[in-house]
Amino acid sequence: MNQTLAQIISLITTAVSFGTVIMYGSLGEILTEKSGQLNLGVPGIMYLGGIGGLIGAFLYETHTAAPVPGVGLIIALACTVAASVLGGLIYAFLTISLRANQNVTGLTLTIFGSGVANFFGGSLSKLAGGVGQISVASTSSAFRATQHLTDKLGWFDSIFLSYGFMVYLALIIAVVMSIFVNRTRRGLNLRAVGENPATSDAAGINVTLYKYLATCVGAAVSGLGGLYYVMDYIKGTWANDGNIEAVGWLAVALVIFATWKPLRSIWGAYLFGALYWLYNFIPGLSRSSQELFKMLPYIVTILVLITVSLRRKKEDQPPSSLGLSYFREDR
């Protein structure tokens, strides 16, 4: 009995921390897609964000005698945002200003991001003296500091308070984004741009600006997912194992699962996390059936897609102009 409870708690905490990586990725992509930009470069941007933060923290820690965790944290955050916004800018410039095909550009950005990140990851390993030797212990500890108040809370503590601050930051971002998109004037404009850019243009909205901002801010949020993965989930090192890309695609799937609603991506992310790691908690699975279990998040996404298209509820559909370039004088 106690062991089952422990297992359930363990599954929940795994789901929450893994889900948080996905949530960042998908929250950023939701914001981007609201403006009609289909950025399939999310995995690449998460790579860029992850490696950016790691490089920042690594350089800080190796060049300082006694690194202060808080400073490392701020440097890592700033580097992540800078690196992922740069990725977003590349995408935005190509698709908005040059009107390149969004699908192709996004996929290319994924390849670019993972290449750049793994190149620098390898370089850092070399600097650090070998694979797996990268350590940003001090910065990572700041990211992983849990919210323990007292030891008397038992399971409550495990489920709700045993995470680093970025788990809670993701929740705050989701709520703020939901309020922004649904309750503010700019959010209304953003939604309109993604639905119908020509109409928004005629209404005096700067379509290009909105698309650029949504893409870049969205990239920054997605990039935070990479940072959380590097600093908290794998505890401040680098692994050339392609996991970030896998999570990145889960994030793209989660956008669809959440039907482009930030709040829905909260529980969606945790559900994805739970489904993805479910195989760990089912005894006697072979290697190959584990891989089958990892497919569960994609299967539920497909189910959601089918349900949504059967129900034909307009509010659950992707932004109407998603993936399309906009050019005013086109006729």
Partner: peptide, 29 residues
């Protein structure tokens, strides 16, 4: 103000939301 032949309205929004689209004003709707 021009009323275009092909309406410039966002289907997903309500009448009121369409009316104030792109207008300046308080941050919150």
């Amino acid at each position: 103000g021009m009323i275009h032949q092909h309406f410039k309205l966002v289907d997903l929004l309500t009448a009121a939301e369409n009316v104030i689209l792109g207008m300046k004003g308080k941050r919150l709707l």
